[in-house]
C-alpha cells in the first residue's frame, strides 16, 4: 500500500480538483480529506456516511463559581490569556494544559473533554472515503488530521488497497505536517505566480525536513509562461521531478459546479488527458 498526499503551501492552486481526478483514475484506493477546517472533497465525491464518530481531543478548563474565591492565581499563571477578569474561561484560547486546574488552591477548576468535531467513514462511487468536520471555531485540527489518516489506513490495510490518496490543506504548519507523516509521495501543486513559487519553496523545504519524497505539478501554467519556466528551473536545481503542466481551463469550474470530477465531466478534454498521464506516472514511479 502506498500513500500519496496532495499539498501546495499556497491555497487555491487546485489540490482538491486534482485529488478528485485521481479518485476517478486510481484503482483500488482509499480516499481521505485531511483539509479538515475547509473540507471540499466531499462536494465532488458525494459520500454516503457509514460510520460517524465524535472527535474528542484535549480538554478545556471550566471554573466552578461556587468554589472560586477569585484569588487570581489562574489568571497570573495562564500563558494563553484564556481566563477573563470575571473568571470565565475562553474555550478558544484555552490550550488544555491543566496548569490552572493543578494550581487552583480552591480546587475550583475542572478539565472537561468537549467534542470538537466529527469524523466519518463513507462510501462513494470511487471507493471508501475518510473525512471529518471540525466544529465551528475549534482548534486541534492537526490531531483530527491524524485521526482521518488513521481511519483511511485501517480501511486500506483491511482491504489490501494499493493507494491511499489524501487531499491536504494549505500552509506548512501543524495540519500539513500531520497529513505528511509517513507518505510515499508528497505531490505539490503550484501555480506560475511569484506567490506560488515563494510558497512552493517553503512547502518543499518542509516536506524535505520531514523526509517526504516530493513530486510537483504546475497548474494554470499558461497564465504566466515565464514564471512557469522559472518554477521548472527551480525544480531542476532542486532535483524535483515535474510530473506535468496543466493549462487554465474553465471546464474545471464547470465540473465543480456540476459536482463532478473533471474526468467524469469532460473525459476527453485536454486537462483530463494530461491528468491521466500524470496519474500513470505517479502509479509507475512512486515506490
Amino acid at each position: 500500500m502506498r500513500e500519496l498526499v496532495i499539498i501546495s503551501g499556497k491555497g487555491g492552486t487546485g489540490k482538491t480538483i486534482i485529488t478528485g481526478a485521481f479518485a476517478s483514475l486510481a484503482k483500488n484506493k482509499v480516499l481521505a480529506d485531511c483539509d479538515v477546517d475547509a473540507a471540499d472533497l466531499h462536494l465532488i465525491l458525494k459520500p454516503k456516511i457509514k460510520e460517524e464518530q465524535e472527535f474528542l481531543s484535549g480538554t478545556e478548563a471550566v471554573i466552578n463559581k461556587d468554589l472560586c474565591n477569585e484569588c487570581g492565581l489562574c489568571r497570573r499563571l495562564c500563558r494563553f490569556d484564556a481566563i477573563s477578569e470575571d473568571f470565565l474561561v475562553n474555550p478558544i484560547a484555552c490550550e488544555g494544559c491543566n496548569f490552572c486546574a493543578f494550581a487552583c488552591p480552591q480546587k475550583a477548576i475542572a478539565m472537561q473533554k468537549n467534542p470538537k468535531g466529527k469524523y466519518f467513514v463513507s462510501d462513494t462511487k470511487f471507493g471508501h472515503f475518510a473525512h471529518a468536520k471540525l466544529g465551528i471555531a475549534q482548534d486541534n485540527s492537526g490531531k483530527l488530521v491524524s485521526l482521518v489518516k488513521k481511519q483511511a489506513n485501517e480501511i486500506g490495510q483491511k482491504l489490501k488497497s494499493d493507494w491511499i490518496i489524501i487531499d491536504g490543506s494549505p500552509g506548512i504548519g501543524c495540519p500539513v505536517i500531520a497529513s505528511m507523516s509517513g507518505v510515499n509521495c508528497a505531490l505539490i501543486v503550484t501555480e506560475p505566480t511569484m506567490s506560488g513559487l515563494h510558497d512552493a519553496d517553503r512547502i518543499i523545504k518542509t516536506a524535505r525536513h520531514f523526509n517526504a519524497p516530493i513530486k510537483l505539478i504546475i497548474n494554470k501554467y499558461d497564465l504566466n509562461p515565464v514564471m512557469s519556466k522559472k518554477i521548472e528551473a527551480y525544480c531542476k536545481n532542486n532535483d524535483i521531478s515535474v510530473l506535468g503542466k496543466l493549462a487554465f481551463d474553465k471546464t474545471v469550474v464547470e465540473a465543480m459546479v456540476e459536482g463532478k470530477t473533471i474526468i467524469e465531466y469532460a473525459p476527453n478534454s485536454e486537462t483530463s488527458n494530461k491528468l491521466r498521464e500524470i496519474w500513470n506516472k505517479i502509479d509507475n514511479e512512486v515506490i
Binding site: S146, K149, K150, S181, G182, N211
Partner: peptide
C-alpha cells in the same frame, strides 16, 4: 526503525 507518528496509522 520508523519516523514519528508511525503508530498513529
Amino acid at each position: 526503525s520508523v519516523d514519528s507518528n508511525f503508530g498513529k496509522k
